[in-house]
């Protein structure tokens, strides 16, 4: 399984799965999961648009999702409605491109179904950016995540400058874009949503929560990778089925983890 053909796809997939679990946890804490889903949808639409226009995939998808993210930012009025509208508009754009432009169909297939077994070494290099950002700027990222929790209270921790928020927003955007590119939209969104959800029920503390969400995401990826390859099935559906079964199990065992208020 891990011969030279599979090594880059596996390492890249495992890395992005781990990072998506982390990003999902921070979105969960901010009740911003819906925003993550819309960013994923817009990244896919931007990616398809880039393919049609023969432009670089990641930068265009990133720009497109950044624009959508700006229009649906949390402080905007009627944010839920804006999110839904953006989700529908991106879906409509993709559908129109697929129907009217033949080459869009191939690109959309990659963004929707994922290309995890065919990630190239060149693609993998993109991952160095969020990994480096995490390694170098973890304290900044953590302070932004923590800041989002104490509002509307205010503590004595030094105030955060605007660039720190931008740094964190860029990190999130890039991860979601790369997640959709590598794993496909459904799998990436699933890894943003579900590991954090499961971890939130069982973790006791901020850092254990982040770590647990990332690890659940990684484990789900590894198991799904092996099962999908073994059964010769597409990766995304296997991941979603296995992950949902795991979530159901945790839900049934929830009374043993949580006590009543």
């Amino acid at each position: 399984m891990l011969d030279s053909f599979w090594i880059w796809p596996f390492i890249s997939g495992a890395s992005i799965a781990f990072l998506l679990g982390l990003a999902g946890a921070t979105l969960f804490l901010r009740s911003a999961i819906w925003q993550g889903l819309v960013v994923g949808q817009s990244a896919a639409a931007g990616g398809v648009l880039a393919s049609v226009m023969a432009l670089p995939l990641v930068p265009v998808a990133l720009l497109f999702s950044a624009l959508v993210s700006l229009l649906t930012r949390r402080k905007a009025k009627l944010q839920q409605e804006r999110l839904l509208l953006a989700f529908l508009l991106c879906g409509a754009l993709m559908t129109l491109l697929i129907v009217n432009i033949p080459q869009a169909s191939v690109a959309a297939s990659r963004w929707l179904e994922g290309d995890v077994y065919f990630i190239t070494r060149q693609d993998s290099l993109w991952l160095l950016i969020p990994i480096m950002m995490l390694a170098v700027g973890y304290s900044t990222l953590q302070r932004v995540w923590q800041h989002s929790q104490i509002m509307p209270d205010r503590g004595c921790a030094p105030r955060l400058s605007r660039w720190r928020f931008l740094f964190e927003a860029f990190w999130q955007l890039l991860l979601i874009v790369l997640g959709c590119l590598f794993l496909g939209l459904p799998a990436a969104l699933f890894l943003i949503l579900l590991p954090a959800w499961i971890a939130a029920f069982v973790a006791n503390g901020f850092k254990p929560f982040l770590l647990l969400s990332s690890l659940i995401s990684l484990v789900l990826f590894v198991i799904s990778w092996a099962v999908a390859l073994d059964l010769d099935q597409p990766f995304s559906p296997i991941l979603i089925l296995l992950g949902s079964s795991f979530a159901l199990l945790i839900y049934l065992l929830k009374p043993f983890f949580m006590t009543k208020k």
């Binding site: 804490l29 009740s31 923590q146 800041h147 929790q149 104490i150 209270d153 503590g155 004595c156 921790a157 030094p158 971890a199 939130a200 029920f201 973790a203 006791n204 503390g205 901020f206 254990p208 929560f209």
Partner: peptide, 17 residues
């Protein structure tokens, strides 16, 4: 939030206490 995995210690850290 209904589900919020933070503890009181986390809260103290976040408040710079």
């Amino acid at each position: 939030p209904d589900v919020w995995p933070l503890t009181g210690y986390d809260w103290f850290e976040m408040m710079g206490a």
